Amino acid sequence: MSEFSKALSVSTSGLQAQSSRLRHLSENISNADTPGYRRKTIPFQTAFAAGSGVSNVEVGRVSLDDRPLERVFDPSHPMADDSGHYDGSNVDLLIELADAREAQRSYEANLKMFEQARQMSSGLMQLLRR
Score class of each variant (00 low, 15 high):
Ala98Ile: 12
Thr46Cys: 01
Ser20Asp: 14
Gly88Ile: 04
Arg101Glu: 07
Phe44Ala: 09
Gln104Ala: 12
Gly36Val: 04
Phe48Tyr: 13
Met125Lys: 08
Ser30Leu: 00
Gly84Asn: 13
Arg21Ser: 01
Ser13Lys: 05
Leu22Ile: 04
Ala49Asp: 15
Val72Met: 15
Phe4His: 01
Met79Asn: 15
Arg23Val: 07
Glu115Lys: 03
Arg38Leu: 04
Phe73Asn: 05
Arg67Asp: 13
Asp87Asn: 13
Ser26Gly: 05
Arg130Gln: 15
Gln116Asp: 00
Glu3Asp: 10
Met125His: 06
Ser63Trp: 00
Ser11Lys: 02
Val57Phe: 01
Arg38Val: 01
Ala109Tyr: 10
Ala109Pro: 09
Arg105Thr: 00
Ser55Leu: 08
Ala80Val: 11
Lys6Gln: 14
Pro35Phe: 02
Leu25Thr: 04
Leu128Ala: 14
Glu115Ser: 08
Asn90Tyr: 12
Ser121Thr: 07
Glu115Cys: 01
Ser9Asp: 10
Ser5Glu: 08
Pro35Cys: 04
Ser89Lys: 03
Asn31His: 07
Ser63Ala: 04
Asn28Ala: 03
Leu64Pro: 00
Gly123Asn: 08
Ser76Ile: 07
Glu3Cys: 06
Gly123Gln: 07
Met125Glu: 05
Ala80His: 09
Gln116Asn: 01
Thr46His: 06
Thr34Cys: 02
Ala80Trp: 13
Lys40Cys: 01
